[in-house]
Write a protein that binds this DNA or RNA. Structure first.
Lengths: 324, 324
DNA sequence: CTATTTTGCACAATCCTTTGTGCAGTGTCA
DNA sequence: TGACACTGCACAAAGGATTGTGCAAAATAG
């Protein structure tokens, strides 16, 4: 069938046989331990040359089996088609590749049970560690892996009860500055549509919102702080409800990119124009913002940096546990 | 260090020892070949129960080594942060997972040399097959893999000289209908900013453009057919140049989502409003379109379907080469 | 010229699973 | 009772790389 079966694979054994030496010798030379094991310069040269000529690449399955290390990272993302996560994922892939690691991608589809299955799958596949942006409904499964000392770094969303390294942008500062910007422009009644209330990023963003208002001596009207999900639906529905209540407001702070889109949709449907009738600030940097009907202001998150830092942290951890 | 090292792993051997049977017996039972090898019901039951109790999961490294099959697919994408590819990738992951395959993700960064490196890396990692959206500059490396009978399915971009299965939306029909739509609304001078001219999707899209114009007896002005890249830059620059030349036009057909964004930027900078001053139709479905300052019409590509079909094709191929 | 050290490498076990072969023990039939 | 079949499983090799140990031969010392 496949031509791959036809010609015998280039293995240590093949090289050893050809050169009339043992596999161990070949292995030691190729892993750079030639001198350490007193392989003669002549043998070393021969091995190196033949390996090059035959384009020898060690079989990672065999290596993994033997070394209990696969140079593989499991990446679990709630939705890779979310531009924010896609950009984070890209940087993770680039960074990991440069360090000699590959990425196995799992999309948890914003579903905790799939997140758990992904963890199990990746564990079974012997990944060296996890990068995960948790769905965030429950955390028992993450705690469990943390307890078992798996190298794992949390990205973006976080739940404070877990003791794991965590990388995201400065959520507090983001909303803090955004709301301050609105206040400076005279807004005093600023609504806020938030994401999953239990998540740390959301909590931090809300904290920034409160802090800014406080500094401007604006009493916080809890009826203007609504929402409980990072999705578009939440932004849409909560904005509709906000508009239907008696309390008035002149600006909206949307705590995610999707919420922001939902809010825009709702405002548009209600015939309100941004920023003529109302001001809107979103969260998460996106290419598209500048092309929006209204140039919506957005709090930038640096996905590249998030991805890069998270990956470096994880790889350092992996390598400290199981040195090369 | 790691707690994982502490407790011994659950292996066939461990189960065999506990039950005082041989590893082969355990293996046969667990792979469902109990009867075939005349394992007694009693033994079978005992094995099954202990495996369940101990949550035995076979080591995929050992399996891969033995079976020469890893249940892994290599996915190579020019830019995972491009929403179109991100959505395709998501569906691929979902579909592959359901068939028991995992995805190793490689981002070629729109760079052919990285694409080649990714192929080599994935081959070394013993993936069972490739899903690739090629950069498309050169194709020798792809030809090479095709020649070696690697299961490989091309997604989105394609170069006709390679004989490989190819999945994308109906590019011809997409622009054909879009341009017809413009013609029906009275446009006669329709510019077109195309993507990489060598790629099949682009050729098909251009063919649709020409066909529609022909059917309306509109002579094709080649100076209105510009561009050579799918990126934003190309859309931006070529639109600027179009606006600076003497030939006038009333509509632009942008042959990718990024080109479309670049075009919008250029038009905006030149103070032109869509659709007051000019009409614009883009390519690729995106959530954001409806939120754009101008509701730009877009030719939809069904990423879910593309991802799904490509994955199914590949897995069928893999399984026909190396049946389970 | 013998005793000791050093050189240069081979052997074999190990990681874990799969699978072809083979061998005791029990049962069947003539 | 002896030939034969069948039952139920064990043994061992294979797949590829790594690594501790050990053993000859060569080099050096005395």
């Amino acid at each position: 069938m496949s031509a791959r079966k036809a010609k015998p694979p280039v293995t240590l054994k093949a090289i050893a046989r050809q050169l009339q030496v043992s596999e161990s010798t070949v292995s030691r030379v190729l892993s750079g331990n030639g001198k350490k094991y007193r392989i003669s310069a002549k043998t070393e040269k021969a091995v190196l040359e033949l390996a090059r000529k035959w384009r020898f690449v060690p079989n990672p399955l065999a290596q993994g089996l033997r070394l209990n290390r696969t140079q593989t990272i499991g990446l679990i993302i709630p939705d890779i088609s979310n531009p924010f996560f896609a950009r984070v994922a890209r940087q993770i892939e680039v960074e990991a590749r440069q360090a000699g690691f590959s990425i196995i991608l799992c999309d948890s589809e914003e579903d905790t049970s799939l997140e758990i299955k992904s963890l199990e799958l990746l564990e079974a596949r012997k990944v060296d560690g996890f990068l995960i942006a948790p769905v965030g409904e429950t955390t028992d499964h993450l705690q469990e892996y943390a307890r078992r000392d798996w190298p794992m770094v949390i990205v973006d969303r976080y739940l404070p009860e877990i003791k794991l390294p965590y990388v995201s942008s400065d959520n507090f500062k983001g909303t803090y500055q955004a709301v301050k910007y609105l206040l400076e422009r005279g807004h005093r009644r600023i609504a806020c549509v938030q994401g999953r209330t239990a998540s740390l990023p959301n909590r931090e963003r809300v904290r920034g919102y409160r802090q800014a208002l406080q500094e401007y001596q604006v009493a916080i009207d809890e009826s203007l702080l609504v929402g409980n999900d990072f999705g578009l639906e939440n932004g849409y529905i909560k904005t509709k409800l906000l508009l239907r209540q008696e309390k008035k407001f002149t600006a909206i702070m949307a705590l995610s990119n999707l919420i922001c889109l939902g809010t825009i949709r709702a405002l548009t449907e209600e015939g309100m124009e941004i920023p003529r009738d109302i001001s809107l600030i979103g969260f998460d940097d996106q290419v598209y913002c500048e092309y929006l009907r209204t140039p919506v202001t957005t709090v930038a998150q640096n996905e590249k940096e998030i991805g890069s830092i998270a990956t470096k942290l994880l790889i350092e951890w992996i390598q400290s546990v199981n040195p090369v």
